[in-house]
Amino acid sequence: MKEKTEFLYKAIEDKTITWSESSNQYLILENTTALIFKKLNAGVSIKEIASELSKELSLPIDKTTDFVTDLEQEINALKTEKDASTINKDTTINKPEKFEFIKYYKINELIFKVEFYSEYELYLVHPKFEHLEIEDKNIYAHTFTIFCEADFIYFYIENNFIGTWNKNEIHFFQGKFSMELIQKIHQKEEKEWMGVFHASAVSNGEKSVLFLGDSGNGKSTSLALLQANGFTCLADDFVPIDIYNKEVYSFPASISIKKNSLDTLLPLYPELENSAEYHFKRLNKVVRYLKPNNLDFLSHLPCKDLVFIKYKKNSDLKFDKIAKIEAFQQLVPDSWLSPIKENAEIFLDWFASLNCYQITYSENKKMIATVAKIFNDEL
């Protein structure tokens, strides 16, 4: 029987990564389990697979039947699971006639007009893009409109409804805003992006490196330190990669700097002393924003290295190559990955080609020197 095409399988190291088209979810399976998974999806019966497995492993038939049954339930869950970011497409609301704030942002030669109904909507977007603000312009390329009604936030572009989100899902709205922005900046539709990663992207002008880590590990602080030492910030927090070049594309948002990093960064960036402070209660953090040193928001560069970075007080510098499966488990949960099968296949091939590292440090100079070696292929 011909295997169905709604799953992809990619062998990496000693595991098989399995992707479901229905739910756009990834599973990491033992290779033997992946073979059973394929048989189930191809329509082979539980009884037949359990019988083969019982003979092969010399296990009781009831044990192998239970195992295969549980695996079939996982397959069914993958086929039906819904994306938590699904938006409510209620277009019956009337747009406001007046907006309290209208901002203009210039990104390269493109000017964006963004209408904010009140200070609340402004707070959701403006801090990250304030450095791009220009005086009022009569000529602009695109109009983004943002307003709240009851417990929902609405988003339009050129009077076309994009979506609405509950206020408890503001991060999904912010992600969609950024996705629409990169489509306009780089003239690429959403289907042309392989994924967007919660990372920091640094370049030396020839290639890029992605820095990842849990919130509070020092990812953005490390980016700011590298930016002050000859490297370029391609993107912070929102890192898009396309399907054609498989390259990191620049994104013009500011670098978010947490309060506990100020003592380290003020000598390098005195402007942070008087910059506005923003309190994000949902994330339980206080941040200021630092302008990226990127002068070309059309730039895009190849990436072959993922670095999981962590600042740890009084730690000696530790640098290790880590297993790709370990890196995958950390990379995927915080990422937006294209739900298109061909794009998922490109992502898996791209990921398989990467070098994956872990850096733990306390001395900034040692971290910067190690990153320089990664860029120079000296490791």
Results as ranks from 00 to 15, higher is better:
residue 1 M to C: 04
residue 5 T to V: 09
residue 7 F to R: 15
residue 10 K to L: 07
residue 17 I to P: 04
residue 19 W to V: 05
residue 23 S to L: 10
residue 28 I to R: 01
residue 31 N to M: 07
residue 36 I to M: 00
residue 40 L to E: 05
residue 41 N to Y: 09
residue 43 G to P: 00
residue 54 S to H: 03
residue 57 L to H: 07
residue 63 K to Q: 14
residue 64 T to L: 10
residue 69 T to P: 02
residue 71 L to P: 00
residue 72 E to R: 06
residue 73 Q to E: 10
residue 76 N to C: 04
residue 81 E to V: 11
residue 82 K to M: 09
residue 83 D to P: 07
residue 90 D to N: 12
residue 92 T to M: 00
residue 92 T to D: 00
residue 93 I to G: 03
residue 97 E to N: 15
residue 105 Y to L: 15
residue 106 K to Y: 07
residue 106 K to D: 05
residue 111 I to F: 07
residue 117 Y to E: 14
residue 119 E to N: 13
residue 133 E to K: 13
residue 134 I to A: 12
residue 137 K to T: 11
residue 140 Y to N: 05
residue 145 T to W: 07
residue 153 I to M: 03
residue 154 Y to H: 15
residue 156 Y to A: 04
residue 160 N to A: 14
residue 165 W to M: 01
residue 178 S to E: 10
residue 180 E to G: 00
residue 184 K to W: 13
residue 188 K to H: 11
residue 192 E to H: 08
residue 194 M to A: 09
residue 203 S to I: 00
residue 207 K to Q: 13
residue 212 L to E: 08
residue 217 N to A: 05
residue 218 G to F: 03
residue 223 L to I: 03
residue 228 A to T: 09
residue 231 F to T: 00
residue 231 F to P: 00
residue 235 A to G: 12
residue 236 D to W: 00
residue 244 Y to H: 06
residue 244 Y to F: 08
residue 251 F to D: 07
residue 262 L to M: 10
residue 276 A to K: 12
residue 281 K to A: 13
residue 286 V to S: 09
residue 292 P to T: 04
residue 295 L to R: 03
residue 299 S to H: 01
residue 302 P to V: 02
residue 303 C to P: 05
residue 304 K to H: 14
residue 305 D to Y: 08
residue 310 K to A: 13
residue 310 K to M: 01
residue 310 K to V: 08
residue 311 Y to T: 06
residue 317 L to A: 14
residue 327 A to E: 08
residue 328 F to C: 07
residue 336 W to G: 09
residue 337 L to I: 15
residue 343 N to K: 06
residue 347 F to M: 15
residue 353 S to C: 05
residue 360 T to K: 09
residue 363 E to F: 01
residue 364 N to P: 09
residue 371 V to D: 05
residue 374 I to E: 04
residue 375 F to W: 06
